[in-house]
């Protein structure tokens, strides 16, 4: 065991290292406008893509300085970061809430301080923002349901077939994606045409989806027409399993995912692995468009909500 560090050394070391780390992030440009984006968790491909798109779009404008905070999936941290952002009096504050209640207080504070606030992608219960820009999982689910009905009709002449559903984890997004699709599917299920032969929860993860799909494949003895997965990695995991079992079955099966990220779902659809994915919009383009108007035009009044439409990406 090394000798105990003295209190002074400890304090000095901690301060020094914190300063060094913080120093890496600092930059001293004198842009006209300051925009702060409080991101919920950088470490998700969807959110990483959001950050990248923000940097790209604001980067085109010399008069805007963009700062991104990462709450790293920690609600308390997000609250602190929003409060820290308020102190810098930004011209625009964009918050991507980690959940729908925790950031209520600090967002209210921001508004009281006269800061313009955009709530991005996930709505909050307090509604302390100038505008909410997001998308509707239920609507996306409906689009997926409609695609499935159409594809089955093409295959069998009528909306008829066996369906396997791979769910995410038990959060609102999963319920919405499920409910939306089944709004469309339910009449056909009630008519005895479409049958749900297997349901499994794979927690949004590809590895787990492979395990669950293997079980589903064996339990159904390969007798199914449609895989509806709540995100693209799960859909692709299912594809890999089916391909491993039977190349032809992988071509025949209708595999549908959601999210449509450029680096994942879009590529898998292009490769013909997935039949369709439905873009879950990054919301960034709209946020930049509306945000710049809010900054530059004091008379501009944004609408309370902008719900962005999803875009189907199909191939095969």
């Amino acid at each position: 065991m090394p000798a105990r560090l003295s209190a002074f050394t400890m304090i000095a070391l901690t301060t020094l290292s914190t300063l060094l780390l913080a120093g890496c992030g600092g930059s001293g440009s004198d842009a006209k406008y300051l925009v702060i984006f409080c991101q919920a968790n950088n470490a998700e491909p969807y959110r990483a893509a959001q950050n990248e798109r923000f940097e790209e779009l604001f980067g085109e404008r010399d008069d805007v300085k963009l700062v991104i905070y990462d709450a790293a999936k920690n609600g308390t941290k997000q609250v602190e970061q929003i409060e820290q952002a308020i102190k810098q009096q930004p011209d625009l504050l964009i918050v991507a809430p980690l959940n729908n209640a925790t950031p209520n207080k600090p967002m209210e504070k921001a508004q009281e301080a006269g800061i313009k606030v955009i709530c991005l992608e996930r709505n909050t219960t307090g509604k302390h923002y100038d505008t909410f820009i997001g998308c509707d999982n239920k609507a996306i689910g409906r689009m997926a349901g409609e695609f499935i009905v159409k594809a089955l009709t093409e295959k069998h002449g009528e909306p008829k077939g066996k369906l396997i559903e791979l769910k995410g984890s038990e959060i609102q997004a999963m319920n919405d994606r499920h409910d939306g699709a089944f709004e469309v599917l339910q009449p056909h299920i009630d008519a005895g045409k479409i049958e749900v032969v297997h349901t499994a929860t794979a927690n949004w993860a590809k590895t787990e989806a492979r395990a669950k799909m293997t079980e589903a494949y064996n339990a159904t003895e390969g007798d199914f027409d449609v895989i509806y997965a709540h995100n693209d990695p799960m859909a692709h995991g299912a594809y890999l399993v089916i391909k491993g079992k039977n190349e032809q079955a992988a071509k025949d099966a209708i595999i549908v995912g959601i999210d449509g990220l450029a680096e994942e779902g879009v590529k898998w659809v292009e490769a013909g692995d997935l039949d369709a994915t439905f873009e879950y919009p990054l919301c960034v383009d709209k946020a930049v468009e509306i945000g710049m108007k809010m900054i530059e035009d004091p008379d501009f009044k944004p609408e309370a909500t902008y719900i962005l439409d999803s875009r189907p990406i199909t191939g095969k």
Partner: peptide, 14 residues
């Protein structure tokens, strides 16, 4: 994992 999933993604090993 990388071979079976045909990719490396951040949900692996959670």
């Amino acid at each position: 994992s990388c071979a079976l999933d045909e990719n490396a993604d951040s949900t692996q090993g959670v």
